[in-house]
């Protein structure tokens, strides 16, 4: 476990953070993709699955060269979205963060600047269930393929 000081260990590998509620239909897309990634047993890939993002993740992000967030998003239209994460300048709620605020905390607290991206999975149904809508189900598959290609290049 890290001590409370900036890491002196060179960051390496990729951290994939999937977040959402697996009991709320399409919102579980992020954790579902993380589960699939874990089954691939790719070298130098670490995963985190969570209901939501929280400040403690900044420390783990600081230990990696690259961080990929995966989240269900009702505003994403009809295909998997990919966007680079820039540091947030907004205020932060203490027990729930944005990817941008975590990137900022990783730099300010641990001196780390991992490359950070966000995959957004289109989501339509947030009912209490463990199944995906057809659109989300297809996009989860597309995101897995995209991750495979991305990680194969590195």
């Amino acid at each position: 476990m890290k001590k409370s000081e900036p890491s002196e260990i060179a960051p390496r590998g990729t951290l994939i953070i999937g977040y959402g509620n697996a009991l709320r239909g399409d919102d579980g897309a992020g954790p579902c993709i993380v589960e699939w990634v874990e089954q691939q047993q790719w070298p130098d890939v670490t995963t985190l699955s969570a209901h939501q993002l929280f400040p403690e993740m900044a420390e783990q992000m600081a230990q990696h060269e690259r961080v990929i967030f995966v989240d269900a998003d009702a505003a994403t239209v009809d295909a998997v979205g990919l966007q680079p994460i820039v540091e947030a300048s907004d205020r932060l709620m203490a027990h729930r963060c944005s990817p941008g605020s975590l990137v900022r905390m990783a730099r300010e607290l641990y001196g780390a600047r991992p490359a950070a991206f966000l995959y957004t999975i289109p989501a339509r149904c947030f009912d209490v269930c463990t199944t995906f809508s057809p659109l989300t189900r297809n996009c989860v598959r597309d995101a897995c393929n995209a991750l495979t290609q991305l990680l194969a290049k590195s």
């Binding site: 476990m1 890290k2 001590k3 409370s4 000081e5 900036p6 400040p55 403690e56 900044a58 420390e59 947030a88 205020r91 932060l92 203490a94 605020s101 900022r104 905390m105 300010e108 607290l109 641990y110």
Partner: peptide, 29 residues
């Protein structure tokens, strides 16, 4: 108000912020 949050704390008092994260993480671990 823009500074009075944990991001403001991370910028002004990073050691305190890191220690808070450490304590919370340890409890959860």
């Amino acid at each position: 108000i823009e500074q009075r949050n944990i991001l403001g704390l991370a910028a002004s008092h990073p050691e305190m912020a890191r220690e808070g994260i450490w304590l919370r993480k340890f409890g959860q671990q």
